[in-house]
């Protein structure tokens, strides 16, 4: 990937759910460029296509029509093997934390690391402890999710996404379960990683506190990007 090449370049993207007459178009000719190291917020009402766009850019769905270039690789028609390899370079933060209930906080975070290249895996426990510490969970590392609060679980999920030094992070309402300070800390951390490591973040959120911190805000309406509402 060239230094000037954007982290994500979406062009002429259309997407449908269902087949035949029952099919419903979710995205209409979406064009979007996300600069490397930036924090981009996707906004829009429910059903506007934010999540669909997020999953397409995050290699979690097959591109049906149009182009999605992620970190210099075209995702349209890419084989599953390549999509899996790409996902290993990404970080995901889900609204529902999706932690493994039988693994401790540290072990959950390690699962985000073990899938990464050997040089990153070698950091092991130390890296997991470091990220959990940054997120204020140093004293909760060996707790099972059942013994953590909703906010703590969400921070473990964030740590799992960040521990492997991802190049792009896709997040869906990552601060919804967090209090004001914790939410701001998380966004500051994401921005810091963008500045220092060039990590790109694409986030779906309705949190007005975060919108002000974003490098760019993109609004979707009925599956289309509202050009008048793109800021940054």
């Amino acid at each position: 990937m060239g230094a000037d090449e954007p982290a994500i370049a979406v062009a002429g993207l259309n997407h449908w759910f269902g087949r035949g007459e029952a099919s419903k178009q979710a995205l209409f000719d979406v064009n979007l460029v996300v600069a490397r190291g930036s924090l981009t917020v996707l906004m829009g009402p429910s059903g506007s296509g934010k999540t669909t766009l997020l999953t397409l850019m995050g290699c979690l769905r097959d591109v049906q029509q149009g182009s999605v270039r992620l970190l210099g690789h075209e995702l349209a028609a890419a084989p599953e093997r390549q999509l899996v390899a790409m996902r290993r370079r990404l970080g995901f933060i889900f609204q529902a934390h999706n932690l493994h209930e039988s693994l401790t906080a540290r072990q959950n975070v390690l699962m985000g690391l073990h899938v990464k290249p050997r040089r990153l895996r070698a950091a092991g426990d130390g890296a997991a402890a470091h990220v959990l510490g940054l997120l204020g969970l140093a004293d909760r590392m060996d707790y099972l999710p059942a013994n953590l609060s909703g906010g703590q679980k969400q921070r473990v999920a964030i740590a799992r996404a960040l521990v492997g030094d991802p190049e792009v992070v896709f997040a869906d309402e990552p601060t919804a379960a967090l209090d004001r300070d914790s939410g701001l800390n998380v966004v500051e951390l994401l921005k810091h990683l963008g500045r220092t490591r060039g990590m790109t973040t694409v986030m779906v959120t309705h949190d007005s506190r975060i919108i002000g911190l974003a490098d760019r805000v993109v609004t979707l309406e009925d599956g289309r990007i509202d050009a008048a509402a793109v800021h940054g």
Binding site: G58, L60, V84, A85, R87, R88, L90, G91, F92, F94, A96, N98, L99, H100, E101, M111, G112, V115, R160, A161
Partner: peptide, 11 residues
């Protein structure tokens, strides 16, 4: 959901 999460993060 946990298995799906593993798939999402590249397993």
């Amino acid at each position: 959901h946990e298995y799906a999460t593993f798939k999402a993060i590249g397993y």
